[in-house]
């Protein structure tokens, strides 16, 4: 088999995952895209291992390890997403701007929500510092 076939397929899958990571808003969809990228890397590892006929079969061993690490990653990632959802009521990564450097960047991206929240914000938490502290409560 020509080596370009698996290599090109891996490239295409990786870039699909890259698009998903950059363009998606829901945190779980971002995790799915990360899985696609990991799978592209795995496909590359297996193809090159079969091509090189490595005596140690490092490519296949690393693929197995990558799959296990991906499973661990998805478990931890989902736990984090669920914790964020429990605290914030949403898992949109566009809204998680508490570590933003300035107060300007903390405003929500969509204006409707910002306008709706601004009254509650001014009543309870005028300063950005206080908001950050509450975000963890």
């Amino acid at each position: 088999m020509h080596l370009a076939y698996p290599a090109v397929l891996a490239v295409l899958l990786f870039c699909t995952g890259l698009y998903g990571v950059l363009a998606r808003r829901n945190a779980i969809l971002v995790l799915m895209s990360v899985e696609l990228m990991l799978n592209a890397v795995n496909l590359n590892l297996v193809a090159f291992d079969v091509w090189l006929r490595d005596a140690l079969h490092a490519g296949q061993a690393l693929t197995l390890f990558t799959i296990a690490i991906a499973a661990a990653e998805i478990g931890i990632g989902l736990a984090i997403v669920l914790a964020v959802y429990r605290n914030r009521g949403s898992s949109d990564i566009d809204r998680l701007r508490d570590t933003a450097e300035t107060d300007d960047a903390e405003t929500l991206p969509d204006d409707a929500d910002a306008a709706r929240d601004s009254t509650a914000d001014q009543a309870t938490a005028p300063a950005g510092k206080a908001k950050k502290a509450e975000a963890t409560a």
Binding site: P6, N42, A47, V50, Q60, I67, A70, L78, L82
Partner: peptide
């Protein structure tokens, strides 16, 4: 097709079997 049988079955078991189920659980829980 690349003659990596064992990895193929590991892929089916872990990715299709558990990771997708975890993702679906995550979608439902959020």
């Amino acid at each position: 097709l690349l003659t990596a049988e064992f990895i193929a079955w590991v892929q089916v078991l872990i990715y299709v079997g558990s990771i997708v189920v975890l993702l679906l659980f995550g979608l439902m829980l959020t």
